[in-house]
Design a protein around this nucleic acid. Structure first.
Length: 599
RNA sequence: GGAGUCGUAGUUCAGUUUGGUUAGAACGCCUGACUGUCACUCAGGAGGUCGCGAGUUCGAGUCUCGUCGAUUCCGCCA
């Protein structure tokens, strides 16, 4: 097809081009017919330029009359000054006085109007993703994604890293997430797995001596989805040899500092905050604390203070090994600066919230403006204990203490959730801030009561801290659970953005970890023999980290769903609405693979 | 696997609480008018398997049960 090719795009023309003859190619975003005089908004991914079609040119008008939204056209003419300027768009001072117009392709009436403030549901947008991606904000999401790719590539190239591609078809490994499996035709009855992460490969690259590896790569996990979880997602995957945790922090801080600076113009501090896992849990009730609410509503354990009270609820908690803890809510104000009273209604709502989390109820102590205490708990607590609680929270007039009792994990977790809820409900955090924090010293194992076995908390290649190595031979549950690792998460605004560790590089230690997590030597050999073998040929000390690329872009764009930064995402039931996948396959395909479907 | 929300015109929604005449609005679409619009305006028109399937009822968009899809959360995600 021969057509007049564009000389410019729809976002670049301005008054400097006045008088020039130009040709634009693009999509009809809007046609306005004023009765002979037509205006057309022509759109491409760079912007929108207004075309003006004069009355009188009957040949041109007959073409214009046929135009509908989303038709693809080529328009030529002279750049002229507009009679009335549109200040809302960069090209708003000029328009094209069209003398030639060509329809390059027609469009059916689109199922929804392609406009910035899209009305369509996400379901429809996903079905017609190619229309949704014509919208400026979606284009900008993809452009941001591209910009960050480039920043990452440049950064690691400067630092002497090598990008190495690892296989997409790999060995299925137990542990961790469910694998996506790919049947082998050549080896009937055998399967590849899509990588949950390139973990084993990058460690083996370290054994190979490729001491600085990086890759922006897809990972696949067959688990249930969320707004921030897709079955396939992208990571910035990093591994280094001869490094400590500090080296990895420094590299990562440099990376994120660079991305924030280059791609959204925000200057981050040279080093990020740090908190240990135990402190995070005990102070914020969560392993991914949102440091936009760092210094308020910290969790305070008052078990000691109330242990001698007569109050049965507290006594029961203590006898059953639980705790009593709480948070303090400062005096809060609405957007007009008027004080918000903590009413019965608010407390009832919070009580419901607490009960949904499986706790009996919510205790509270309000300190009135006169300094007088107000609480249903007072009759159960001596004045001495009341005063100790107030002083432990350093509570003053107009403030409220919320108290929970029961199972330790549940109490901490619920208080953690309450902090987030209160902060959200009462606007207690600065949403324009980016709070980066490293959570360090994660436990090596967690114990699954229902299965009676240990799991690697991060993954089973994580090295215990040297001073805890001795506990690998222990049979004592508390000792095993007390093992900490140089294992860390990077958290931004309460979102887990990255995770890594210093790895085991010694096959004996690796075997012990396998054994604790329930692998016999035979099983470990069957599954990870290749890695253990590699470790016997001079494995250097090494460690690494992986960052969620989609989540990073989501944060940079101020969004909440990673689906908006992925060109072709899947729904929460892991299907793609545009191309209807997954789908059935023919009997012949199954035969070839030696598979049959269960009835 | 569990819980919540949603599903009505091409689209976004109202109508469902309390079952009852011909299911409405806006945007989009079609026709006509209009020479400076940029959410153009004005006049008119077409457009509905109320997600699907059972049930209750004289009668179901509305009530009940099931089911499918979207979405949010819990479990799960080393």
């Amino acid at each position: 097809m021969i057509f007049k090719q564009r000389t410019h795009n729809c976002g670049e023309l301005n008054t400097k081009f006045i008088g020039q003859n130009v040709t634009l190619n693009g999509w009809v975003a809007k046609k306005r017919d004023l009765g002979g005089l037509f205006f057309i908004d022509l759109r491409d991914r760079y912007g929108i330029t207004q075309l003006k079609i004069n009355p009188g040119n009957s040949e041109l008008i007959s073409i214009v009359e046929k135009l509908g939204n989303e038709f693809v056209i080529s328009a030529s003419g002279k750049v002229i000054m507009r009679e009335s300027v549109n200040k809302n768009i960069p090209t708003g001072e000029i328009e094209i006085d069209v003398d030639n117009l060509e329809i390059l392709n027609e469009s059916e009436t689109p199922p929804f109007v392609v406009e910035e403030d899209v009305k369509a549901t996400e379901e429809l947008r996903l079905q017609y993703r190619y229309l949704d991606l014509r919208r400026k904000s979606m284009v900008n999401n993809l452009i941001m994604r591209n910009n960050v790719y480039q920043t990452v590539h440049r950064y690691f190239n400067e630092k002497g890293f090598i990008e190495i591609e690892t296989p997409v078809l790999m060995k299925s490994t137990p542990e961790g997430a469910r694998d996506y499996l790919v049947p082998s035709r050549v080896h009937k009855g055998k399967f590849y797995a899509l990588p949950q992460s390139p973990q084993t490969y990058k460690q083996i690259l370290m054994v190979a001596g490729l001491d600085k590896y990086v890759q922006i790569w897809k990972c696949f996990r067959d688990e249930d989805l969320r707004a921030d979880r897709q079955p396939e997602f992208t990571q910035i995957d990093i591994e280094m040899s001869f490094v400590t945790q500090e080296d990895i922090f420094k590299l990562s801080e440099g990376l994120y500092k660079r991305i924030w600076k280059e791609d959204i113009g925000v200057e981050l501090p040279d080093t990020f905050s740090r908190i240990t896992y135990d402190d995070a849990i005990n102070t914020y009730g969560i392993d991914k604390p949102d440091f936009r609410i760092k210094d308020i509503m910290k969790i305070i354990n008052i078990s000691d203070v109330v242990k001698n009270s007569e109050f049965k609820v507290f006594q029961d908690a203590i006898t059953s090994g639980g705790i009593i803890a709480g948070i303090k809510l400062n005096e809060i104000k609405d957007s007009k600066g008027i004080k918000i009273e903590i009413t019965r209604k608010i407390i009832d709502k919070l009580t419901d919230f607490v009960k949904e989390n499986g706790l009996g109820g919510l205790g509270y102590i309000k300190i009135n403006d006169t300094g007088e205490l107000q609480s249903p708990l007072l009759k159960f607590l001596s004045v001495e204990i009341q005063n100790s609680i107030v002083s432990k929270f350093n509570a003053g007039k107009g403030e409220t203490i919320f108290i929970l009792s029961g199972n330790k994990n549940k109490v901490l977790q619920t208080l953690g959730q309450m902090r987030l809820k209160l902060a959200g409900d009462f606007n207690l955090m600065d949403n324009s801030k980016y709070e980066f924090v490293w959570v360090t010293d994660f436990p090596l194992f967690r114990y699954e009561d229902s299965e009676g076995r240990y799991y690697g908390e991060h993954h089973i290649f994580t090295r215990p801290k040297p001073e805890h190595l001795k506990f690998l031979d222990s049979k004592d549950k508390d000792e095993i659970l007390s093992i900490r690792a140089d294992c860390y998460d990077l958290v931004i605004n309460g979102i887990e953005i990255g995770s890594g560790s210093i790895r085991i590089h010694n096959s004996d230690i690796q075997k012990k970890v396998f054994n604790i997590t329930g692998f016999s030597d035979e099983e470990a050999n069957e599954r990870f023999g290749f890695l253990l073998k590699a470790f016997r040929y001079g494995a250097p000390p090494h460690g690494g980290v992986a960052f969620g690329f989609d989540r990073t872009i989501t944060l940079l764009r101020g969004l909440t769903s990673i689906r908006d930064v992925i060109a072709f995402p899947k729904t929460v039931s892991a299907s793609s609405l545009m191309d209807n996948c997954p789908s059935n396959v023919s009997g012949g395909q199954l035969d070839e693979l030696g598979l049959s479907l269960k009835k």
